[in-house]
C-alpha cells in the first residue's frame, strides 16, 4: 500500500458514489470523466511495465469517445422533444 495509490483510490471511491447519487444527466458525465482519469492512473501504477502504459492510453481514449457519443445524444434528444 503506497501513499500515492491511497490518494487516487480515495478520489475514485468518492467519484463512484457521486455518480450514483447525482440526479442531473450532464453532471454525471463530468464525474465519469474524473473516474476514468483515476482508473487509468491506477492501471499504470498496478501493472508497472510498458504494456500497462499502452493499456492505459487505449482505455482512456476509448472512454473519451464513448462519453462524446453520450453527450451528443443528449443534445439530439433535447432537439427532438
Amino acid at each position: 500500500m503506497d501513499i500515492v495509490e491511497i490518494i487516487i483510490g480515495v478520489i475514485a471511491l468518492l467519484m463512484a458514489i457521486r455518480i450514483f447519487l447525482t440526479r442531473s444527466r450532464a453532471r454525471k458525465l463530468l464525474y465519469l470523466c474524473c473516474l476514468s482519469f483515476c482508473i487509468s492512473a491506477l492501471i499504470a501504477l498496478y501493472v508497472d511495465s510498458p504494456m500497462g502504459g499502452i493499456v492505459a492510453i487505449t482505455y482512456f481514449v476509448c472512454s473519451t469517445l464513448s462519453s462524446n457519443a453520450i453527450a451528443y445524444t443528449i443534445e439530439q434528444a433535447k432537439d427532438i422533444e
Binding site: P50, A56, I57, F60, T64
Partner: peptide, 20 residues
C-alpha cells in the same frame, strides 16, 4: 469531457515517462 485535451496529454505523458 468530449475530447482528450491538454489534461489527457499531461496525465498520459506522465504515465509513460514513469514507465519508459
Amino acid at each position: 469531457v468530449c475530447s482528450p485535451d491538454a489534461s489527457a496529454g499531461t496525465l498520459l505523458a506522465s504515465i509513460m515517462s514513469y514507465l519508459m
